[in-house]
């Protein structure tokens, strides 16, 4: 469902000059699988996911989502993905219901089906008690639920989550993770970025560890632990990062 090969993104920055945010990334994600992107802040996770969601254009390389190239068919790609990140906010002057309804209509959903789907989502996500509340009055948990409902309203085959739990309290974060787990069981193709090890261990089938725009290791967690001879994910992660840091120091 997601195929990425040699994906590179670079741009210029006032302080750092020419920056390569993502360098020659290559991976694939199948339906019914949760693929984790694990890396520290500024590693290139968001850049990668923004390219997959067609918001950014790649400098070079190819990314295909649900069979469509993100550079040449961005509209088709967007119609088949659900994207949620801590940057995808909720409109202040719209109620929860209006917001989800609005995006459902933009996805071109049939009006009867849309209403039925919203009712269903609002009851499973327990949102009926604030369905007429304006975005500006909602708590963080409520906003996150609206975002999830907005992401899955059109039942997309591919879902992209960019650090969806950052800044959430434990209860809300748990609910989000449960929602994602249930989406996985429905056979969705999910890509998930985070810097929290526990979430990766619980949720992801395969992971890629990313640092300074480069993928350092990719594979199933147990395979990675075995090949790198590390006891757990945390050790593996810090070992790979420090090796990479050394490489950068030597190179310069």
């Amino acid at each position: 469902m997601i195929e990425v090969s040699n994906l590179t993104k670079s741009f210029s920055d006032l302080r750092r000059g020419h920056v390569v945010a993502l360098e020659e990334a290559t991976f694939a994600v199948k339906p019914g699988e949760v693929f984790g992107l694990l890396g520290p802040n500024g590693a290139g996770k968001t850049t990668c996911l923004r390219i997959l969601s067609t918001v950014l254009r790649p400098t070079s390389g190819v990314a295909k989502v649900a069979g469509f190239d993100v550079s040449t068919h961005p509209v088709d790609v967007r119609a088949r993905i659900g994207f949620m990140s801590n940057n995808t906010g909720v409109y202040d002057r719209m109620t929860a219901w209006e917001m989800v309804e609005y995006f459902g209509r933009l996805y071109g959903m049939d009006e009867d089906y849309l209403q039925e789907r919203i009712r269903e989502l609002f009851s499973t996500l327990q949102m009926l008690n604030f369905k007429d509340m304006l975005g500006s009055k909602m708590s963080t948990g409520m906003r996150q639920k609206v975002s999830i409902a907005r992401t899955i309203i059109h039942d997309p085959p591919v879902m992209i989550f960019d650090e969806p739990t950052s800044g959430l309290d434990v209860l809300v974060a748990r609910a989000v993770l449960q929602a994602i787990a249930s989406l996985k069981s429905q056979g969705k193709c999910i890509i998930y970025s985070t810097h929290i090890m526990r979430e990766v261990e619980k949720l992801c089938d395969r992971i890629a560890i990313i640092h300074r725009g480069r993928i350092l290791a990719i594979g199933r967690l147990d395979e990675l632990l075995a090949t790198h001879e590390q006891p757990d994910l945390e050790e593996l992660f810090f070992d790979l990062i420090s090796q990479d840091e050394e490489r950068v120091v030597v190179a310069s």
């Binding site: 969601s53 967007r78 990140s85 940057n87 995808t88 409109y91 933009l106 996805y107």
Partner: peptide
């Protein structure tokens, strides 16, 4: 400013 730009950009509208 209100952080909804990306929400809008990922909808299917061009």
């Amino acid at each position: 400013e209100r952080g909804t730009m990306e929400t809008l950009l990922i909808c299917p509208a061009t």
